[in-house]
Design a protein around this nucleic acid. Structure first.
Length: 766
RNA sequence: UGGGGCGUCGUCUAACGGCAGGACGUCAGACUUUGGAUCUGAUUAUCAAGGUUCGAAUCCUUGCGCCCCAGCCA
């Protein structure tokens, strides 16, 4: 079942790392919860991702509590988290860690930073520090304490640790750059003072490291290779790298990658809101079956297999997405479909009296737990007699046209029993339907009438006297709207019918159902015997999910809306695109401006090309150098702009390839000695390792094959091996030509001229 | 607004320059002793515009839209 190979952008990265021989082939991941709440299904996605990746690559996954903030964290959560991770089937082996176990090492690292002049103690209050941070578009200002001597900093930091300084009096900050465009790098806080009791280190510490400082160190100490977190930490990656770069060496050197966390419709997932629901007793606890917590899902009766299936189904990517909760429900149904025996329960009973059934006769019918596969779990006895209950909704006095259930004068089959016909409706004083008088067809024992007439409907039922009354809790979505936190107070969107407690009547066998077992109530849904509130002989049934999605049709289109109103955007804020930036640079640089003009007039480049080449001096110099080597400026510009720029992600300066080399490369192309396709391969190689283009051509065997016979042969081979596609092509699927071209190019190891290949193919295919 | 990310069926996700695929949902049909399940079929997508290329969802450019970042939280 688990054989499907997981593949996503993270496995791509790991595959590439492994291929490049990084980390000695090690894959180490971690799940790092802060013990300040219960885990929810979003965490399950992350847990399964991290442990799954480790398993897939033969590595290991750690469970690490990120307990660096003593004021919010508790042992209760440490325990529940371990229980939940274990329940999901994830095994951390001996790799259970706590950030707090590293406090001493982290302290040593901080001392090192101070000694090296990379950190300082700031004695300003919070407000001052916040004020100096600047704004997104405005640089911050340096703290007056930024240039304290290492000795002074060391002394202060020691006193911070010794408890000589009160909370808030000072902090340790990294000395990076108060004007950094990423505000997270404007001298971020490393340590703060907190005279608080920690759940593990008790009162040994009164300074605690901040996340941005602690997390990379934890990963580094543990030898984590791939540190996977959610998208909102993207900006933090720069600090993650700063810490590791300044405190190495590390082996392996961890790297952080981000994926989109799970958002689900019709529920809330933030810790704050879940906590609020629990604290205000709007639900029964962290394990309330309506909550998306792992504990809640488990209490509801969802299995870990269903959750795993769900995680598999939704995949892992970087798109900010909202998953339709219907997908979770689909996985739950699919899972339970295969594991829940079918029994009968009537939630809302309507009495049926069989007038032609002997007064005291009770017949013990043998009915299979699995109607479709009777051998699967055998039979159980179900009593049948004169007085029965059916579902009130299964009777209608004025049924719609396609009604298949019971109605006056109509026939239905009672599952595993007999066909009955409604003869009379007995009413109460207010005219309400009180009971039904029916007749049964004695020839239909088991459900099939002797004359084989077609019976349109089939109902579930229980014996009136021999059924037991039990509590059934019908759970539904906690919120009525797709995005409860989209606007206003999420509490106002709570579904008042998310829990309906009923007295149901169940067949005798179900009255004995053991806690923790799962059943399908025929035609109703899947039920789980509550492990907490059930008593021997008095099971409490939690409805896990209905048989069919009654919400699907009503489900609204979910569109993310801002939770809080954004501050009004400033009117007429001038937008500066990259094009504008280039124009500005030129305006202030006559040298570039004149090249811009010259490229167009002398070299006959387009205005766009000239513009892109003269946005900065380095690019223009590179271009000129290339052109001095090879005069076909148009070709140089094209390859530079369309291909080189895409390959050189970090800019032209960092390339092992100089402008002259690039000019030689273009000359090679222009000479017709290598095909454009081969040119791309060659350029990629040059960008990677530099070197002489001509020599590389020889090394890589990229020289163009002018030999028409070789081409014809390759074309022949490809057409032979693609017979089916050729037939489709001849039948009109012209788009397949591309497939043939690609195949021929591959056949000729990329050295062919695609235009010639196309022509050859066209000739052969007619 | 500075920085960082992301735009593929209604939803989630593949395709790594070569046939836009799968799943959920929806619709239709078949089957059915669950109006369930199952089976069959259908439906629908590359944000936009230019460019490079024999060929672009994929590379380049521009534009548009959405998300994240200014806690002594993580």
């Amino acid at each position: 079942m688990q054989t499907r190979r997981r593949s996503n952008f993270l496995t791509d990265i790991i595959d590439a790392d492994l291929a490049a021989g990084k980390n000695r082939g090690l894959v180490v991941t971690r799940f790092p919860p802060e013990p300040n709440g219960f885990l929810h299904i979003g965490h399950a996605k992350s847990i399964l991702l991290n442990f799954g990746l480790a398993e897939q690559y033969g590595g290991r996954a750690h469970l690490r509590f990120d307990d660096t903030n003593p004021t919010t964290e508790e042992t209760l959560y440490v325990e529940s988290i371990q229980e939940d991770v274990r329940w999901l089937g994830c095994d951390w082996g001996k790799h259970l860690y706590y950030a707090s176990d590293y406090f001493e090492q982290m302290y040593e690292c901080a001392v090192r930073l101070i000694r090296e002049g990379k950190a300082y103690v700031d004695s300003q209050p919070v407000e001052a520090i916040r004020g100096q941070r600047g704004a997104f578009e405005r640089p911050g200002t340096n703290s007056p304490f930024r240039d304290r001597s290492a000795d002074e900093n060391l002394d202060l930091f020691r006193r911070m640790r010794a408890g000589e300084l009160p909370d808030g009096s000072c902090v340790l900050r990294a000395k990076i750059d108060m004007a950094h465009p990423n505000v997270l790098l404007r001298d971020p806080l490393l340590y703060r003072i907190r005279h608080a009791h920690h759940h593990r280190t008790l009162d040994r510490w009164c300074i605690y490291p901040m996340y941005d400082y602690a997390h990379p160190l934890e990963d580094g100490f543990e030898g984590v290779t791939h540190s996977i977190c959610t998208l909102e930490f993207e900006s933090n990656r720069a600090m993650y790298d700063w810490v590791l770069d300044n405190l190495g060496p590390w082996d392996p050197r961890p790297h952080q990658y981000e994926f989109a966390r799970l958002a689900l419709g019709y529920t809330v997932m933030s810790k704050r809101k879940l906590l609020q629901l629990v604290a205000e007793k709007r639900v029964s606890g962290w394990d309330d079956p309506r909550l998306p917590t792992i504990a809640g899902l488990r209490r509801r009766g969802v299995t870990k297999e269903a959750i795993r299936e769900f995680a598999e189904l939704i995949g892992v990517a970087k798109n900010n997405s909202i998953v339709d909760i219907g997908k979770l429900e689909f996985c739950i149904r699919q899972d339970l479909e295969g594991r829940a025996p079918r029994g009968m329960a009537v939630l809302n009973p309507l009495k049926v009296v069989l007038s032609n059934w002997p007064q005291d006769r009770v017949e013990e019918l043998e009915i299979a737990w699995w109607p479709a596969e009777p051998e699967k779990a055998g039979l159980r006895g179900v009593p049948f007699g004169r007085e029965l209950f059916i579902e009130r909704e299964d009777f209608s006095e004025s049924p719609p046209a396609d009604w298949k259930r019971l109605a006056p004068g109509r026939e239905v089959r009672l599952i595993g029993a007999y066909v009955v016909r409604c003869a009379e409706v007995v009413r109460g004083p207010a005219g309400e339907v009180r009971e039904l008088r029916c007749t049964y067809d004695a020839s239909s024992k088991g459900g099939e009438p002797a004359d084989k007439r077609k019976i349109p409907g089939t109902l579930h039922w229980v014996h009136a006297g021999r059924s037991a009354e039990v509590e059934a809790r019908l759970y539904d979505r906690l919120f009525r709207v797709g995005l409860p936190d989209a606007e206003g107070d999420f509490l106002q969107h709570m579904n008042p019918e998310s829990l309906v407690v009923m007295k149901a009547r169940v067949e005798p066998a179900l009255a004995e159902a053991a806690p923790g077992t799962r059943w399908q109530f025929l035609r109703q849904g899947y039920f789980f015997v509550d492990p907490v509130d059930s008593r021997p002989g008095a099971p409490v049934f939690n409805r896990v999910i209905g048989l069919r999605d009654t919400w699907a049709k009503a489900t609204e289109q979910l569109e993310r809306k801002p939770e809080k109103k954004k501050p009004e955007p400033k009117p007429a804020a001038p937008k500066k695109g990259r094009a504008e930036a280039r124009a500005e640079v030129r305006a202030g640089n006559p040298e570039l401006a004149s090249r811009y003009a010259r490229y167009q007039s002398e070299l006959t480049l387009s205005a766009d090309e000239a513009d892109l080449l003269t946005g900065d001096l380095a690019t223009a110099e590179f271009f000129d150098a290339a052109v001095s080597r090879h005069g076909n400026a148009k070709l140089v510009a094209r390859w530079l702009l369309n291909d080189l720029l895409g390959l050189a992600k970090k800019g032209l300066e960092g390339l092992p390839l100089r402008g002259e080399d690039f000019g030689r490369f273009v000359a090679l192309l222009d000479s017709g000695r290598i095909a454009p396709a081969a040119g791309k391969t060659l350029l990629a190689r040059l960008v990677e390792q530099g070197g002489d283009p001509q020599r590389l051509v020889n090394e890589l065997g990229l020289g163009k094959v002018a030999d028409g016979a070789a081409l014809a042969e390759a074309v022949g081979r490809v057409l032979d091996s693609h017979a089916a596609e050729v037939a489709r092509y001849r039948a009109g699927e012209k788009k397949l030509l591309g497939v043939f071209i690609g195949a021929v190019m591959k056949e000729m190891q990329g050295v062919a001229d695609a235009a010639a290949v196309r022509k050859a193919l066209a000739d052969r295919l007619g």
